[in-house]
Design a protein around this nucleic acid. Structure first.
Lengths: 138, 138
DNA sequence: TCGCAAATAGAAATGATTTCTATTTATACC
DNA sequence: GGTATAAATAGAAATCATTTCTATTTGCGA
């Protein structure tokens, strides 16, 4: 949490109970969560919390690099803690428990070369979504 | 178009002017399109066309394997023609003109082995989104 | 050609996300 | 520690993509 507070300060964001609570939920869960998931988990402790506040905080934390946004089949907003913020990596998501784990191994260079040759295109970005069952759910 | 009509019949879908028009738009464009994109392109020729009809037809064509659904950063529904329906492949999307091209080359096996060893997880699915500039937009 | 199930239009509902405004709060400065 | 101020928040309301519903129309098998 100490490190995240530092990042908030670097980004000129005030250290509010809401922001710390949102980060805390992600630290505790290790899952990728929708805004409503976060809202529901915090509602007991913070009964006056509003859903728009959750949306805004999640966007700020993403802009600060604390969270990453993940694309999912349901096309809802989803976020997860990012512990490798400055390193290229991908994410594995468990389809059962929604746990998200980082994968710092990538073979995309060969694909990129293939595309640039075959299609005569310029490859700039790639995102890989990996799904399956985590060690606990297997 | 002949081939697509056959697929519609195989799936017990009637050959209606709307369905043929939707397929025609994708054949002409080679882009990935949102339901509203399709609606806007057809509205001149078919002034009585309704947006819910477009949504339904797109879902049917996807279920028949004629279209693929693609995840995009804006989290809107997007579809594109799929010309390799029974073969594992990925898609390259141009960020400028939105053209979508198929890439039948994949190096995911190594990543999958890495994850199964490192995380002790079972990998079931993967989706790769590749962005950049196509040959025309470069 | 005819009858019927499938397809469609148009209106309305749904539900995630964003915007707006008045109030509260963290913090820089004394 | 107190205070001023800009940032943060709650709650209501708006927005907008998508889906549902119902009455009408249409493709196509018999």
């Amino acid at each position: 949490m100490r490190a995240y507070v530092r990042v908030l300060k670097q980004n000129r964001l005030k250290i509010t109970p809401r922001r710390k609570a949102v980060i805390g939920i992600f630290m505790k869960c290790g899952l990728n969560l929708s805004p409503y998931d976060v809202y529901a988990k915090l509602k007991k402790k913070l009964p006056k919390l509003g859903l728009p506040t959750v949306y805004r905080i999640l966007a700020e934390l993403k802009d600060s690099g604390i969270l990453v946004q993940s694309l999912s089949d349901d096309r809802l907003l989803r976020y997860a803690l990012c512990t490798l913020p400055h390193q290229h990596h991908h994410h594995f998501t468990c389809r059962k428990c929604n746990r998200m784990e980082e994968v710092d191994f990538c073979t995309f260079k060969a694909v990129s070369r293939f595309i640039e040759n075959r299609l005569n295109a310029k490859v700039e970005t790639h995102q890989l979504q990996i799904g399956g069952l985590c060690s606990k759910c297997k």
